[in-house]
Amino acid sequence: MKKVFTRPESLKDIPFHYCPGCTHGIVHRLVAEVIDEMDMYERALGVAPVGCSVFIYNYMDFDMYQAAHGRAPAVATGIKRVLPDRLVFTYQGDGDAAAIGTGELVHAAARGEKITVIFINNAVYAMTGGQMAPTTLLGQKTTTTPAGRDAGINGMPVKVCEMLAPLDGSAYLARVSVHNPKNIVAAKKAIRKAFDIQMRGDGFTLVEVLSSCPTNWGLSPLEALKWLEQNMIPYYPLGEYKTPAEVGK
């Protein structure tokens, strides 16, 4: 019997604290699998955000940093500039990267910082109790949009890949999802591609992962994945929004 599926070495063998059905766990595994496959365990440095996924700094088995809310791309900049041959990535939620950390995100991309941002879009601030995030959909009910997000009050949801694409410093931007196995496989490919492009030194890379939040969406884990497919994907189309070929490589 040959093992065809087992825990990646880059992931510590401890239980996740995430809610049942929360797909953070899947994305953590994908990142760890890719780092194993690239044999980059000893050169991987991850920067954890503030949010549900802050504890990625415990789950990853290699050296990690924990950054102030929204500041992970700046922390990663400092790390990568000191250690240019390391694989440096941040793992951030939508509140972390697309609200308070927008300045850091945009300018890391504008500088072509050779880092990778794993951007988890689950349309809410989850850890703090399900508030509206920049990516909350129109009409979506959250604890701070009880009547549903109203563009007249809170504006329109932010499309991060589309926002960063015009910045020449960004070399690879892709939006993927983990709501079913086919997409999980595609998500892993995108993460691998982003890391490869980073290590080739082409510039800033980001993978936006549509992810579920059963608890704060008030849905069962399976219903949440269906909701994601039917509501998030139409507004956040999956695909590659920047690839090095466009950067004249």
């Binding site: 700046a74 900049t77 790390i79 990568k80």
Partner: peptide
Amino acid sequence: NMVFGAAG
């Protein structure tokens, strides 16, 4: 925060 990263 860049200082934080570089110092780390």
